[in-house]
Simulated scan of single mutants.
Amino acid sequence: MTFLDYLISVDARTALMGRMMQKLGVDRQLKSVPDHAGVTNRAVDRCRSCGHQDECSTWLDEHQQADVPPDYCRNRDLIARLQHAAGQR
């Protein structure tokens, strides 16, 4: 893998995280948490280290809306906390 391939891969995984947050309706809530930058960076790191990019992309394409992320989502706990804070759960 070249460095450029790595950067493209990282960017694609970051985009998946953004799509997941939007799909589950917590993207705005994420922006309002204390230490927003730190929380977001850790969420991006969890997404980047996930091995389910293809499954995640397919799941996102197949779901118009969802209440919970797939079981393999490494940000599942964060999403649940954001949903709780937003009164979605």
Rank of each mutant, 00 (worst) to 15 (best):
R76S: 12
L24V: 00
D35L: 04
A15Q: 12
Q53K: 10
R13V: 00
M20W: 00
A12G: 12
Q65M: 09
Q29F: 10
L16H: 00
A37K: 14
C73G: 02
T2D: 13
D11H: 11
L16V: 08
I8L: 12
R89H: 10
V33A: 12
M20R: 00
H52S: 14
K31F: 00
A86Y: 05
M20P: 02
R46Q: 10
L60S: 05
W59K: 03
D27C: 01
L4Q: 13
C56A: 05
D11F: 09
G25P: 00
C47S: 07
P70V: 08
M21K: 01
R28Q: 14
A15R: 11
V10Q: 14
Q53G: 02
A86C: 13
L16G: 03
P34G: 07
G87K: 07
V33K: 10
A43I: 04
V26M: 09
G38H: 08
Q88K: 14
S9A: 11
D5C: 04
Q65L: 06
L7C: 12
G38S: 15
S57L: 11
A86F: 08
Y6T: 12
C73H: 03
L30R: 11
C73E: 05
C50T: 01
A66K: 03
D71N: 09
L4T: 10
M17C: 08
W59I: 04
M1C: 01
C73A: 08
G87T: 06
T40W: 10
I8G: 06
S32L: 11
Q29M: 12
D54C: 00
D27S: 05
N75L: 02
G18M: 08
D71M: 08
N41Y: 12
Q65K: 15
L16I: 13
R42A: 11
Q22I: 05
I79W: 01
F3L: 15
A66T: 02
V26P: 01
Q65T: 15
Q53C: 05
R13D: 07
D5M: 10
S9K: 13
V44K: 13
C73V: 01
H84T: 15
A66Y: 01
